[in-house]
Design a protein around this nucleic acid. Structure first.
Lengths: 199, 199
DNA sequence: GTTGGCATGTAATTGGTTACATGATTGG
DNA sequence: CCAATCATGTAACCAATTACATGCCAAC
């Protein structure tokens, strides 16, 4: 057993463990109860994934004894794990990433600020927007070209896709604005306004 | 080998084969080149899936000889296949369907008109909208409750999700309008305007 | 003292990814 | 004839789903 690659779920776990140490159960609850509902959450997925990450030395588990609690294994990220996470986060955006629904890109973005900082987020967002534009254009071209050969429900489904990607594109602009303002603020008053900003 | 369940890819193939008979290569091209890019398209996925469908008698393949073309196996859907497809399309919408990103729901909708007719589409769209509303509300509640405990990029990612679902909700209303109008038209002039409608 | 939720795991099966292999046919 | 593309497949590997199993601790 040599192991080397890390799956999408593995990276999601890495990202969460970089925020703070957690147990497998904590992680399952996050996937089950929070807005990250689009990931597995079943024990048969989480625990093996954690074992793989630990085998690869990306995380390390310690049985959290004492404290009157049930025995639970707390996982923390290692330096190697942080490095792997950063590499994953910093990967350039490929066209296929956006074709496949952009779910992985959004996951990466949600961990990005803590791991890579604000300027990396800005860079990512502008690349993301630039990747969305031609893709939306392509979908629209396909729609106008093929509209009369496809069934109405197929056409409407495609229109939904276009709307979704356009909304995502709008969002990149909005998020860029938020980050640019945050960057400007941190330059004017040298230290203040971490977390929250104006209103 | 008994087989009985059909995967998502299998249902996508069934839906496409219900429109018309196609070869494995045709199907691969559709996944690779059209807006259905969020499905596999690799030969290692398509051909085994077709074999499973044929084993289950949901489709039937015939080598299309003659015609000066290379040998290719044309698959057509069977009556059993149509029945399975209709069952899948008619399944009630579960909350998990929308949490998981609604991709499967949109796939079902895109095949729905041909297989189940306009009134089924209307029924589906109104249920879809009804399922989206509380989910959007839940996400928004989570955002306002947790906004200050999450990193900014996480918060923004969540906002993107909310925007996406809201756009989908708007779309269900738009699509409902299109179908209602189509239904009204087909009642006034008893026969006309199949495929295309006004304009 | 037993029910129910916390917490961790494993085994069987299945399906997808990647990569490779092969042949036929058309176009230059 | 050679390259590209059409067209179909297979094999190794891996990860996720489902379902099951277990054991602790708290509360009633």
């Amino acid at each position: 057993m040599k192991r080397s690659t890390t799956s999408l779920l593995g990276h999601a776990l890495l990202g969460l463990l970089q925020q703070k140490s957690r147990s497998g159960y904590d992680l399952r609850k996050i996937f089950a109860e929070t807005a990250m509902g689009n990931y597995s959450s079943s024990p048969g997925a989480i625990y093996p994934a954690l074992q793989r990450l630990e085998f690869d030395q990306l995380i390390r588990g310690k049985v959290e004894e004492t404290r009157g609690m049930r025995r639970r294994r707390l996982y923390g990220i290692t330096d190697t794990g942080v490095a792997e996470l950063k590499m994953w986060l910093a990967k350039p955006i490929q066209p296929t990433d956006v074709q496949r629904g952009a779910g992985e890109l959004m996951l990466r973005f949600s961990f990005m600020e803590d791991a890579l900082g604000v300027s990396a987020c800005i860079y990512f967002l502008s690349n993301f927007g630039a990747a969305l534009e031609p893709y939306v254009a392509e979908l629209e071209a396909y729609l106008t070209a093929q509209a009369d050969t496809m069934p109405l429900s197929g056409r409407l489904a495609l229109e939904n896709g276009i709307r979704g990607y356009r909304s995502m594109h709008d969002w990149t602009k909005y998020a860029l604005g938020v980050y640019r303002q945050l960057q400007a603020n941190s330059k004017t008053h040298t230290a203040g306004t971490r977390k929250g900003g104006p209103q």
